[in-house]
Amino acid sequence: MSPWRRQGWLPLLALLLGAAGPRSGFETMTPELQAMQRDDAGNPGMLSVLEGEALFAREGCAACHAAAALRGVAARYPAHDAARGGPIDLAGRIAECREQRAGRPPLPRESQPMLALQSFVAHQSRGLPITPDPRLAEARAEGERLFRERRGQLNLSCAQCHETLAGGRLAGANIPEGHPNGYPLYRLEWQALGSLQRRLRGCFTGVRAEPLAPGSPAALALEAYLFGRAAGLPIETPAVRP
């Protein structure tokens, strides 16, 4: 097959996938918010990326990891971890690396330094498509079960809002498809950068359900499923969302 022909296919494929594929929350934001995310000098999430970059150097991460080699890493997470026999997410990997290899005290998942390190690492993959780890099929299946399970006093599932009703309006707010491709991200509601786990906690609390414990097998399974259903979407870290 001639290279021409092969290339001819790609845009068509992209178009077809684009039409039916996942839609980033970015696309349904106002032009002003899109501009805020796009502009590195104005995106408030970049402050965390900068902080992460400084920490990365100060904590000696660069001794093993060249920043350039981090490109693409976040697009492959959550990944299969042989030692755990299951998924590990980016925050989990960073925590493990710091503690076991660098001998540093643990950082809580939601702490500012951890969010900063995570946003710095994920930022290196900005623009790269999410490529789910094929070894996580089992976790994704469990995650999908959780995604479709109705829960909480309001008895709603993730799927009801973020699949069936995506694009509708819950009160004044647009319901996005709920993809994880921009985390950690700067949410105007938080007025801060936060993790996917924090966002999930918000949703669970919203339907008056007990949130999943961050880093628990259930939380990792749901995360693996969310990244699986967002396959192909570019990493946007640090995204900006309302």
Partner: peptide
């Protein structure tokens, strides 16, 4: 000149 500073306000 454009400036952004980390602060909770």
């Amino acid at each position: 000149i454009r400036t952004l500073i980390q602060h909770p306000m």
